[in-house]
Design a protein around this nucleic acid. Structure first.
Length: 581
RNA sequence: GCCCCGUUAGCUCAGUCGGAUAGAGCGCUGGAUUCCUAAUCCAGAGGCCAUAGGUUCAAAUCCUGUACGGGGCACCA
């Protein structure tokens, strides 16, 4: 309908003004839905836009346009209003047309046909040094819902988790695990200050002991004494500690390290699964360091590539990338003086790999504390002749928890973060997912635990689901075959409320499209909430199971449409649409 | 100091990529249930859209400055 009006408008404008305005086809008609019903159903601002170039008043132009406009069965009236808007009034039939469309397309209403474009979404990617906490939850929920949303919008989506199983943090993890393990044999050994203090490592150490008995225990008083020192702080201390243990344990060390990473990944995966988050790809950072026959590995190769472009130099014993050539604030180190590669070096190789896998779109979901990191990654991609705009990053702000109106205090340092597992035990995974995405990603989020648990209209998820359950209940009571409703006379749906709801249903596909294009799944939450509110109002004001069978059928047909759209929307959000509550 | 993001009702937040009288929920005030789920609904009060300029037919929306808040500026990840 909209397209039809646009076409005729454009034709009229071309006929009238093409000799006055050269690039008339470039002018946007900006046909939009009206919120005020007195203004009709659709409006165009074209007369006002043309006023300046034509040197005429908008009203005059609007008059010329509507003189040419042909009224028909579908567009029953055209008016000029306000400063020069052209308002279009549609017939009831063409408004309620959408109900038939929903009836036909069912769960596919709002879904776009495949555009055959592949997208990679990388998200969570939390270090495998401990279980996920609530800080990771938002990125997890967001990435997961966005993936489904993009699928709904026609994309083919891969969801990837980048596993940082390489580098210093992992050594510290391995060392921490060894300490917990050694404590079974010598109670005097203490965890060093910078070690991972969390209790999960004790459990993992138990598993390690169960599998290997005391095979990894070192009977060496000198080593033991290292873990009793009071001044055990600082990077140097830890690094030398790692070195000593590495030497002592020999090849056992890498076994312990792998065991630690694998066990923690198990924890992470099980949490994600419970949370409804399913990555189909796990990319290991250490694979970027795996040497081939020629002792080549991908990090090395990507640095060679940068070097070939002349963007690499040596300074103070370290190897640097000239990222400042490409819009970064300063140059960045790829390989430290110590001989270790930086995390950034891995990331260059990793992103090159993403590009080489042939995606049309590459999306990263990052915590907003990483925003300063993006320019250097883009710089590296540009230096390697990759299209830097293909990579897009959505930054997700922090979430704080609120309980009984007060912020729950958390600090990374003391490890007092509430785990995602605890959150799910308290508010259910689905509620958590919904509340995480019920805000724009770049906004701070206050996650109200009490609200998420509440079973009332204050809880938007509950409110939406209740609308669905109520409709199902009406159908149960009616004992009517839903398929028989297709013959309903939609002209009987002529109240203001009904028209409003029908129009709102018609907006759904556009909401999906817009939410997908701008990576804003929260739009769906708000849409569903409003739709549910309209329904609840309708429900309280009209009866559906009535004597007048024709009217009953047409109302039920409308309810059926609402039910379908709520179902579709909730499905995209990864939520259930319960039949009863 | 430099760079990102934000600032809308007492609180938590939307706001159709510039449109007509700025919207929800909570909270507050007052109502609705012999009836399809009151797990709901209806009505009322509540606004200098942080601030000062600019762009234009039109600005909460775009541009610039200022104030305030959050984050980032490592041979950490």
């Amino acid at each position: 309908m909209k397209a039809k009006i646009e076409d005729s408008l454009r034709e009229i404008i071309c006929n009238l003004y093409s000799k006055n305005i050269s690039n008339i086809n470039d002018i946007s008609l900006n046909l939009q839905e009206n919120k005020e019903k007195a203004h009709g159903d659709l409006a165009s601002n074209i007369a006002m836009v043309l006023a300046k170039p034509l040197g005429k008043s908008p009203i005059e132009i609007a008059k010329q346009i509507i003189d040419q406009y042909e009224i028909d069965k579908e567009i029953i009236n055209v008016e000029i209003a306000g400063p020069g808007f052209i308002n279009f009034f549609l017939s009831k039939d063409s408004i309620s047309e959408v109900l038939r469309e929903i009836d036909q397309k069912k769960q596919h209403f709002g879904k776009k046909v495949s555009c055959e474009q592949k997208v990679l979404i990388e998200y969570v990617s939390s270090n495998p040094t401990g279980p996920l906490h609530v800080g990771h939850g938002r990125g997890a929920a967001f990435g997961s819902v966005l993936s489904d949303l993009l699928r709904e919008a026609g994309y083919e989506v891969d969801e990837e988790y980048y596993v940082n199983d390489f580098g210093r943090q992992i050594d510290i993890l391995a060392l921490s695990l060894w300490v917990r393990y050694a404590q079974f044999y010598d109670k005097n050994i203490q965890m060093f200050s910078d070690g991972y203090q969390g209790e999960y490592l004790i459990e993992i150490a138990e598993n390690l002991k169960r599998n290997n008995a005391d095979a990894f225990f070192i009977k060496d008083e000198d080593i033991h004494s290292l873990f009793n020192s009071d001044n055990d702080k600082g990077e140097n201390f830890v690094d030398s500690l790692v070195e000593k243990i590495k030497v002592k344990l020999g090849k056992d060390y890498s076994q312990i390290k792998e065991f630690a990473v694998q066990e923690i990944l198990k924890l992470i995966k099980s949490d994600l699964t419970e949370f409804g988050v399913n990555h189909n790809s796990w990319f290991s950072e250490s694979s970027l360091y795996a040497e081939d026959r020629n002792s080549e590995f991908r990090v090395k190769k990507s640095i060679e590539e940068l070097k070939a472009g002349g963007f690499v130099y040596e300074k103070d014993n370290a190897i640097w990338f000239k990222s400042s050539k490409f819009n970064d604030d300063k140059d960045r180190v790829l390989k430290r003086g110590s001989g270790d590669f930086t995390y950034f070096a891995s990331d260059v190789a990793y992103h090159i790999d993403k590009y080489e896998r042939g995606y049309e779109k590459i999306l990263n979901i990052w915590g907003s504390d990483h925003h300063g990191y993006l320019p250097r990654v883009k710089a590296a991609l540009e230096a390697c002749n990759k299209d830097r705009d293909k990579l897009e990053v959505v930054f997700v702000q922090f979430a704080s928890l609120v309980r009984s109106g007060k912020k729950v205090s958390m600090s990374t340092r003391s490890g007092e973060f509430i785990s995602i597992k605890e959150l799910m035990d308290e508010v259910t995974p689905n509620a958590a997912r919904f509340f995480y995405i019920n805000r724009k990603a770049d906004q701070h989020l206050e996650f109200d635990l009490d609200l998420a648990k509440e079973q009332s209209k204050d809880n938007p998820l509950y409110y939406i689901q209740y609308a669905h359950a109520r409709i199902c209940s009406v159908f149960r009571k009616s004992k009517i075959d839903e398929d028989s409703l297709s013959e309903a006379d939609l002209n009987l749906l002529d109240s203001e409320r009904e028209t409003e709801i029908i129009k709102s249903l018609g907006q759904y596909p556009k909401i999906i499209e817009r939410a997908a294009n701008s990576y804003e799944p929260h739009l769906i939450c708000y849409f569903l909430r409003e739709l549910s509110a309209s329904f609840h109002g309708y429900y309280n004001n009209e009866k559906f199971l009535i004597e007048d069978e024709d009217l009953m059928k047409s109302r039920l047909f409308l309810l059926k449409g609402i039910k379908q759209v709520i179902q579709n929307g909730l499905r995209v959000l990864g939520q259930r649409a319960p039949k009863e509550m």
